[in-house]
Nucleic acid binder design. Structure first.
Lengths: 102, 102
DNA sequence: AGAATAAGATACTTATACGCATCATTGAAC
DNA sequence: GTTCAATGATGCGTATAAGTATCTTATTCT
């Protein structure tokens, strides 16, 4: 299991997909989110972890909201989003059971 | 509009509620999430912003998953979660239009 | 009253997210 | 082959997330 490193790339993938779907440049998203382009690039490529607040700002800039979903409800939420991802946005999930440790 | 400060407290409120619902101590959650107790406390009280990766770990420790939901789908997702928040978990949302800048 | 546990709070140090400036590479237009 | 736009990538300085240690307070149990 890939705890952080891959979860970051997972997030970055969603951000990039949403950005391209919105026809925005990295610079535009960075500006909307209130961060610099190099920083946004690092986040989108998964080479750096953004703060939760920064990720929220980026998500909003891309027309998304960050939510905490009970794991039991994740499948239902995914099902709700699936028939919708025509061309709009690809709400991601970070499905890593990663051995938190518990 | 209170951009970050309040969104943090919003998140913290959800974390605390989920933690109490799971009958876990701050130390247990911190340990599960791989951070120190003082740090978890700061996050839960909203006095500090965690990294996205840290928030994901905390969420998982509490039986939740972080998801990015298209804004258009947020109401539907909330509706899906509402009849469920009996005693389990209260999937939060950060509904702040906050004037990031855009 | 005293002991144990959970939580609030502080100080010091380290790791890193972020801004800013800069340069290289790619791809499209000329 | 030159110019412009978009992206990838560094280096330096600052802000802050996070670790560790310590102390206090509230609660519970004896």
């Amino acid at each position: 299991m890939q705890s952080q490193p891959d979860a970051l790339q997972d997030i970055g993938r969603v951000l990039k997909q949403a950005r391209l779907a919105s026809a925005l440049t990295q610079e535009q998203v960075a500006d909307l989110a209130g961060i610099s382009r190099p920083r946004y690039r690092d986040i989108e490529t998964g080479s750096a972890a953004a703060r939760a607040s920064t990720l929220m700002n980026i998500a909003r800039a891309l027309g998304m909201e960050m939510m905490l979903i009970p794991q039991a409800m994740v499948p239902a939420v995914e099902a709700l989003l699936r028939p919708h991802d025509d061309d709009d946005l690809p709400a991601f999930v970070s499905h890593a059971e990663d051995g938190d440790d518990g």
